[in-house]
Simulated assay, not measured.
Amino acid sequence: MRVVVLGGGYAGVVLTDRLEDRLPADVDLVVVDDTGEHLVQHELHRVIRHPEFGDDVVVPLDDIFDRARVEVATVEDVDRDARQVELADGTSLDYDVAAVCLGAETAYYGLPGVEAHASPLKRLPDAARIRSEFEDLLESGGGTAVVGGAGLSGVQTAGELAAFAREADADADVVLLEQRETVAPSFPEQFRAAVRDELDREDVDVRTGVTVSRATDEVIETDDGDVAYDVFVWTGGIRGPDALDGERVDVHADFAADDRTLVLGDAARVIDAEGTAVPASAQAAVREAKVAARNVEKLVADVRERDDGFRPRLEQYTFDSPGWLVSVGDGAVAQVGPTVLRGAAANAVKSGVGASYLASAAGVRDAVGLLREEFDLAGE
């Protein structure tokens, strides 16, 4: 019997870690990932200003897992009817139970010129490219960097660029564009307000309620006029992975796409047990993986015991966030329960969690344990 986990991001890593303990020893547990490394995505923005972090924000999957077999390959398609994973090298992998944790890609919404002229921030080479372009801007005597999209990734990127310019004592403007009326629009009001204050403190030019229509190599066209730029970063949304035809799979609280395939993390649009849409975030992916692990275990037992076409009763996931953390340049905002922290207190929370995660990742084995610490403050 074979269980495959597709993707080595937050959901895939935590799920596999749990399955190593839960599945019978004779089950072939395989992780398929296109890099063979886990990327600490929530710290990626730091590499823009501090490239020395680059080696610390990736962890080889072979160093995280004890039992699972890691296959470095790109997933091209998931044939759920045939229970087969098609790989880009022309080979395929059969499965009895699969968990699709392939994450998401940057969405450009068909906006003319945006994909061609903007840098996303999804992988280490993206951070290196943004740094290189911003260094060129600083060395040329100044200019304008524009970040499209004021979700947490956009906020962190804009804050990092603003701090980078300040450290270089350079005349550089950082503009953050957001179509909706507030920054961090998917988050609670107090958290949004504190994030906006931190962006203002970093001298980021925040423009909300602005819709981007197209981009050329010199300007970004919006409904509020053209914005000239020297560096353009796009964090304006996500779409599903290529292996799922760019779609995020709609699943309910048990993550079941069919009777043998689960989809979770950013690759899915999850509606939880209370009918609430779950936000795409590392925190949600980690918490989803716990429930998904128990459901994979049930599906494996069902296949072995009878495989009679009747799906076992799967556990339901309810999203309940213990809080949120975001870096804004040298500052941070943390919300724990109803309390919003800024300044030294927020930095202590953010830096402490981030540093312990990176230290553990560098020391290898307990990266998963620190994911639990960061994103599951409430425990089991």
Results as ranks from 00 to 15, higher is better:
V3D: 15
G7W: 11
G9A: 11
G12R: 01
L15C: 11
E20V: 03
E20N: 09
D21E: 14
A25G: 02
L29T: 05
D33T: 01
H38A: 08
H38M: 03
L39M: 03
V47D: 09
I48M: 06
E52F: 14
D55C: 06
D62Q: 07
I64F: 12
A68C: 10
A68W: 12
V70D: 07
T74G: 09
R80A: 11
R83V: 00
E86F: 00
A88I: 01
T91K: 05
A99G: 03
V100A: 07
T106E: 15
A107S: 12
Y108A: 00
Y109G: 00
P120Q: 15
L124V: 09
P125Y: 07
R131H: 12
S140Q: 02
S140V: 03
G141R: 11
G142Y: 09
T144P: 11
T144K: 08
G148M: 07
S153F: 00
Q156W: 02
E160C: 03
L161P: 11
F164T: 02
A165P: 09
R166L: 00
R180E: 14
P188Y: 15
P188E: 14
D197V: 02
L199M: 08
D200F: 08
V206T: 10
T208G: 04
A215F: 13
G225F: 07
A228Q: 10
A228V: 10
V231D: 13
F232D: 01
G236E: 06
G237A: 01
P241C: 12
E247T: 14
A253L: 05
A256R: 12
D259R: 10
R260P: 02
T261V: 15
V263E: 09
L264P: 11
A277M: 01
A277E: 14
V278Q: 05
P279L: 05
Q283Y: 13
A285V: 02
R287E: 14
R287C: 04
A289G: 08
R294F: 04
V296R: 09
R304K: 07
F310C: 00
P312Y: 05
E315P: 04
Q316S: 11
F319C: 01
S321Q: 03
P322D: 10
V328A: 05
G329N: 04
G329S: 01
D330G: 04
P338M: 03
T339R: 13
R342H: 04
R342C: 03
A344C: 01
N347I: 00
N347G: 13
A348Q: 09
K350Y: 06
A355I: 04
S356D: 15
L358A: 02
L358N: 10
L358H: 03
L358V: 13
A367D: 01
G369L: 05
G369R: 12
L370A: 04
L371Q: 12
D376L: 12
L377W: 14
